[in-house]
């Protein structure tokens, strides 16, 4: 990726981030500024105000290094050694159990809805065949 172009694209993304923060402060929106920025960017692309190729590579770059950008925050766990002993382990277990429950419930629900839709479509096909 061309360096100047890359910095320009990152600059655009940063401006959307700042705009999101600004709107959050002015309008007291109960959403993080970054999410407001995301929605603004989405709106700008859908309405053709912003050509997608203006941010395509910059966005791809940031998403590719996303795990790296998370590291400084995760290193902060070092200030909470209590999470890894005694009652902390209980909290660990709660988060894991809740995650497992979420996986099962979510997968079952969407699986069911998908099947229901497929069955409806099959019925439509069958009735079409019969009417011919």
């Amino acid at each position: 990726m061309n360096l100047v172009k890359g910095i320009f694209q990152l600059g655009i993304l940063y401006v959307f981030f700042l705009l999101g923060n600004l709107l959050q402060e002015i309008l007291y929106i109960p959403l993080p500024g970054s999410i407001i920025g995301l929605l603004l960017l989405l709106a700008a692309m859908f309405s053709n105000i912003l050509p997608v190729h203006w941010i395509q590579q910059g966005a791809g770059f940031l998403l590719a290094i996303l795990p790296l950008l998370l590291v400084p925050a995760t290193v902060g766990i070092m200030n909470y050694p209590s999470l890894f002993s005694g009652k902390g382990l209980l909290i660990f277990l709660i988060v894991m159990t809740s995650t497992a429950a979420t996986i099962i419930i979510t997968a079952k629900t969407s699986h069911y809805l998908e099947n229901a839709k497929l069955k409806r479509e099959e019925k439509k096909m069958c009735s079409k065949h019969l009417s011919h």
Binding site: L10, Y14, F17, L38, L63, L69, P72
Partner: peptide, 18 residues
């Protein structure tokens, strides 16, 4: 590095649009 997280979240609009 942490300060790039905000723009990275904004970037999620791209796969969503795509």
């Amino acid at each position: 590095l942490h300060s790039l997280l905000g723009p990275a979240v904004v970037s999620l609009a791209y796969p969503l649009f795509h």
